[in-house]
Amino acid sequence: MKSLQTVGILGYGVYVPMYRIKAQEIGRMWKREGRLPIEEKSVVGLDEDTATLAVEASLNALKRAKISGSFIGAIRLGTESKPYAVKPTATIVAEAIGATPRLMAADLEFACKAGTEAIQSCRALVASGIVDYALAIGVDTAQGRPRDELEYTAGCGAAAYVLSKKSHEALAYIEDAVSYVTDTPDFWRRPLEPYPCHAYRFTGKPAYFHHIISAAKLLMEKTGLSPSDFTYAVFHQPNVKFPLTVASILGFKKDQILPGLLVNAIGNTYAASSLIGLAAVLDVAKPGDRILLVSYGSGAGSDAFSIVVQDSIEEKRELAPLVKDYINRKKYIDYATYAFYRKKILV
């Protein structure tokens, strides 16, 4: 049997749509008083969806990877907002980036963990030598029921990672990874239902916190690493409070967390959330830095990764827009425009 290869990140790219709605504007609509979970969230334009966001992020990842789409041997696209219930989004992305026809392509669903599940799947395909280059995408155009708590945070965005075996061309490599999964019904959406349901406070302790803490501890036990060994840590970010709290419980300091904490500016981008956070960290990281990435997906589970940054980050970083370029490109919309763009009103 072939021995497994260490897997590197050859390129990464993100995309965040330009429209923003302030949580305060949503609160104005529903006459909500008191503290809001975030400042503002990203909203797709009328002609954007999960497929278009994924293509933008993938083209950025290919620029940093310095390869054409035709080299990609597998695409795993993690999302819960597929444009088609039946028909892969990954084939649309594959055709648009020029990866067709000799590749594997499939969509994955695991709520907000689908993006890191795509990384795990691509990592296995590369580590085993089945493909040389694999594209893992986390993307969502998340919807919250009007007036529900999730409406304040459900955002839109995409992150894409080109994986190949570790080499000096890789801007980082995956040192180790673990997954932690249980059957926990904290958040769900049944077929044909437009909006998800959630179990309110149940989404916290037994769901988000239990899975992230368990996965992070499992990884640190396996690798012998402790919080002080990591320059940065990125956790799934459904709001500002949860990732800061989980970081503190695990023993991470604020300055390890803040560079990758973007939820206040773009909202919870679901399957893209922790992966855009990782991209923001790669945008500022130095060679030798070690990054802890822990996702969380309702249903429920977490993937934890230890990622080590390599020298080529310095040369590759500027080959595509940075996360902050997308965060700063914004146009505010009011609730009526938001309702129109998200098809909440009949036209």
């Binding site: 009328l46 002609d47 954007e48 969806d49 497929a51 278009t52 293509v55 933008e56 083209l59 444009p83 088609y84 649309i92 648009a96 500027e318 080959l319 595509a320 827009p321 940075l322 370029d325 997308y326 700063n328 490109r329």
Partner: peptide
């Protein structure tokens, strides 16, 4: 150039995608 949705063939039909153009994003000139 940017990859966008052109139109939908109603709620049950296919979705057409293709190239449109948008103002250049900062960082795209890198």
């Amino acid at each position: 150039a940017t990859f966008r949705k052109y139109l939908e063939h109603g709620p049950s039909g296919i979705i057409e995608y293709g190239i449109k153009f948008r103002p250049v994003i900062k960082g795209e000139d890198k």
